[in-house]
Design a protein around this nucleic acid. Structure first.
Lengths: 206, 206
DNA sequence: TTGCTTCTAATATGGACATATTGTCAACCG
DNA sequence: CGGTTGACAATATGTCCATATTAGAAGCAA
């Protein structure tokens, strides 16, 4: 049905507005009225498409996390096509999450604002944990693949390796965003940790 | 003057209430009226001692970060007294920041709530960056000390090492708090990264 | 046409909040 | 002793917000 498409389109329109507002003023700056204004619709429309403000935020956050997941997925697919090392793919996939330019700063801010609120709100924490676990599992899988290829030592714990990389990226993100640590140090730290998880060279195509 | 002492005591009394409220309901749950009730004083008193709500929060956050810094300081002092390895001292100092039991969960939550708001509020970011930089510098200094002792390789970049450890702890904290990663994996990741920064054995006292 | 449903807008309601204002009481000082 | 000042308390003010209510428009069926 075309009406369902229209429905989804409207919801996305509102969610887009939410993202812009969060990027500009943080989650505290998001009110239903302001969101409606930003999306150039009425408050009534927003209410019609979302049962409550929480529902609206949850939908917006779900979109954000799913987008993040798709990106990692896409990077992982590229692995099969290009002959780049696994380490390089992971570096690109996770590095994309770092707020090192304006576009990614805005994205990071949105993600982080929701993550911070997830600390107080179990429903948002659930949204976050679901996708984050999926990404971590994907990274772990790729690390596991690295063993066949020779980039990762046989005995390595790929789950722990993935968890470590995710944690580093998480922490570096905050430090980078607050400009507590300069960009070159941020990338240096990331590379160092990647080198630890992927100490070997890929000899699959040799 | 005793009146200044009294003054400071009152401000601390209010700040204590702020911390309890943040730990229980997040920063959003903090209102001037609620804080006054929690501290068992009147709204007027709070206003008398703090020029604005922001001022009150800034004071509370400053206290939190300074306490965190003192703790790392204390751990560093213990290094001189006990004959533990530098790595063990850093592990304890940074590990204390992880929300792995109820007490530290509460503390972590307060710190993180403020850190999250710092993303939107330059004054809080300044408070955070100041103490965080001091802690990082202290960790870097300790890593540097590790070179003399043999725990850290000569060529290592101690600044980067410290930044990496801080980032890992930051990220692990969030993952641990949200229970996205089990405690044993969290500690495993921390130990792995410590082992990377401190790969050698201390032979100073041999 | 009439009536029903879906979608959208405008306005109303009621609560929560930061902060200002005013009042009270004590201590201290000239 | 009168007056001033500092430490509080109680109440008032005005803003902002989420959500409810009401109503109107558009499309379609009978």
């Amino acid at each position: 049905m075309a009406t369902e498409e229209y429905h989804a389109q409207r919801r996305n329109q509102v969610a887009d507005a939410v993202e812009r507002l969060v990027a500009a003023h943080g989650l505290d700056g998001v009110t239903v009225a302001r969101t409606a204004a930003e999306a150039e619709v009425s408050v009534g429309l927003v209410q019609h498409y979302f049962a409550s403000k929480d529902d609206m935020l949850r939908f917006a956050y779900t979109r954000v996390t799913e987008r993040a997941m798709e990106r990692v997925e896409r990077q992982a697919r590229d692995l099969a096509e290009h002959r780049s090392t696994i380490r390089a793919v992971v570096r690109q996939g996770l590095g994309e999450r770092l707020p090192l330019d304006d576009a990614r700063r805005a994205e990071w801010r949105v993600s982080f604002a929701f993550a911070a609120r997830a600390v107080d709100r179990p429903d948002l924490a659930a949204v976050r944990n679901r996708t984050e676990a999926a990404i971590r599992a994907r990274v772990a899988q790729v690390v596991e693949n690295g063993k066949e290829c020779g980039e990762v030592p046989e005995g390595a714990d790929s789950e722990e390796g993935a968890a470590g990389l995710m944690a580093v990226v998480e922490g570096l993100g905050l430090h980078a965003y607050l400009e507590a640590v300069p960009a070159d140090v941020v990338l240096g730290v990331l590379d160092r940790h990647l080198a630890e998880v992927f100490p070997g060279e890929c000899h699959q195509y040799d």
